[in-house]
Design a protein around this nucleic acid. Structure first.
Lengths: 302, 302
DNA sequence: CGACATACATGAATGAACCTCATGAAGAAC
DNA sequence: GTTCTTCATGAGGTTCATTCATGTATGTCG
């Protein structure tokens, strides 16, 4: 039994138009075509879908069952097609974001909140968990945007610069290092380093400082949340290196000291990686604009 | 955009099989056919539904949207097709019943209850309201069975006899007519007659007694429910004529008297009208068997 | 790094499915 | 009874999905 949407449309049209000839007009076909089609469908179904005793033919019991299916399914199809039209028009789309940078939650949430208001139809999501191989996921279209500070764009991927930041040292004000004007790799030998639970090549402190200098901290422990890391640092259980914008709240707090990594301060750039073919999309451009300006405002405001 | 179920099946198969070639096997087509089809579908959609950068091709964002539609719609179709198979096999069907005879609720409910257990898949319903023109509704396939005591079967309709019954007079034991051995038309001249709220040609007392004798009762009032009619009769607010099986409960009650209509008792036959083409159906035969035997048992049991 | 295997795309040809046209039959309306 | 409406039917043409044969790109293994 090979039912097709065409058949469902026919069933519905005949019911609504109250007859085969009228339905044919609605469907832009000849009455003959519809008659043939109904006959074929009834052959497939193995039973009569219409009662022909009275003249304008009417649905039989079985026909009513099929009408029910039609009335469930066809609106579903219409909705999908409407969504595709919107998709083509660029009014809607998907923005699933992967973040390689844990601390980015800080500014990403406010940005997404603003974005959602401007583009309510866009399917927005943050996909944690696949921090690994986020760029591959971008290529596979598992996600549509990756927040990253990598630098070598693979082919087909665009790295849109967002803003610059300083990976910044933070410690308890009781920590001896609080005396120094800046912090170097060697200073970490005696420290417990607190980081996000991700691989070292995703952590600025390793990629920029420790790994090049071949220095290993005394110990390393991890915490998921920025607030937890700062709490541990505040109680002098260790030191951390976080992007400067995270320091907003602790800079005015006497329990903490923040210091640049030195001697010359490390400067890194945050990127939003997208597929090149998404570059032209209006909602994508809007998101990038927000992601460029809002974090900076937050930073200044703090 | 002419989406067809074939396309939805394709989308789902490619997703499940994890690739076009494998999906082609599942769908019993060549890989080439599927490739052409996907291309056509993407032309229709106006965008790529699959990502071809990596080798086994995968759904794009838009493709995922279509997959969602497929996963909603295809089970719906499968369910319908399964139902049609069951319909062809006679395991299922529809049994919508119209009753021209109000008092028939009494035995119809127990019968339907038994029937539902034996044929749980049959779509059972009682359609009140269209007591008028019930036979026309049967022809239009609005209903599948009509409980009636008419006698002239229209072409295409089968009148299956169920059982015979006596329209029986019932009154309060305080009513003077309680003295008589039987009741005639003339006896109603001084009585308030209580009936169901239907036209006179559906009421035995009129068709069999009063109309032929051209007798009009003193007054007529109506009540929907048998229990209400009996209550009114019991408090001597009027008299009624009901099928004998209804009297089951009141016959042993000293407040009531029941009398045959006379001089020779009126005998009527109850029928279940069906379409001739439904005659062969197993569930229909089963229902008729129940409707023949159960009311009689109820009558004896009472 | 080159050879081989795998996976998808393409083009022409075939054939089935669907549509139209012309016409017939059977109710329904007058 | 005549006429109008409504659906059915058959032949013929066109469209469109599928197949076969082959090309191309990607992934994999020695």
């Amino acid at each position: 039994m090979y039912v097709e949407l065409r058949h469902l449309r026919t069933i519905r049209a005949i019911q609504q138009a109250g007859g085969l000839a009228r339905a044919a007009e609605v469907l832009n076909m000849t009455q003959s075509a519809l008659s043939h089609q109904v006959k074929g469908l009834e052959d497939q179904a193995g039973m009569e879908l219409f009662v022909r005793r009275s003249k304008p033919m009417r649905l039989s019991a079985a026909g009513h069952r099929m009408l029910r299916a039609a009335e469930r399914i066809l609106p579903e199809i219409d909705a999908m097609e409407e969504e595709f039209r919107a998709l083509r028009a660029g009014r809607t789309g998907r923005l699933h974001i992967a973040i390689e940078c844990h601390a980015c939650f800080d500014w990403l949430f406010p940005v997404l909140e603003m974005f959602r208001h401007a583009w309510p139809e866009i399917d927005v999501d943050i996909r944690a968990g696949l921090a690994f191989e986020a760029l591959a996921a971008l290529n596979r279209e598992d996600v549509d945007l990756v927040i990253s500070s990598d630098r070598e764009p693979p082919p087909g991927i665009l790295f849109n610069p967002l803003f610059d930041y300083h990976p910044t040292f933070v410690a308890s004000s009781q920590n001896p290092l609080a005396e120094q004007p800046f912090i170097t790799a060697e200073d970490f030998r005696d420290q417990v380093l607190i980081t996000y639970p991700v691989s070292r090549d995703k952590l600025d402190i390793f990629t920029e400082i420790l790994t090049p200098a071949k220095v290993e901290p005394r110990a390393q422990r991890t915490a998921e949340l920025t607030a937890v890391i700062l709490m541990l640092v505040g109680s002098n259980r260790g030191v951390a290196v976080l992007p400067d914008w995270v320091m907003r709240e602790v800079r005015s707090n006497a329990d903490y000291v923040t210091r640049p990594l030195g001697p010359e301060p490390v400067l890194k750039r945050m990127y939003a990686a997208t597929r090149v073919e998404d570059a032209g999309k209006a909602y994508m451009a809007h998101f990038l604009r927000l992601a460029r300006s809002e974090p900076v405002k937050l930073q200044r405001g703090g």
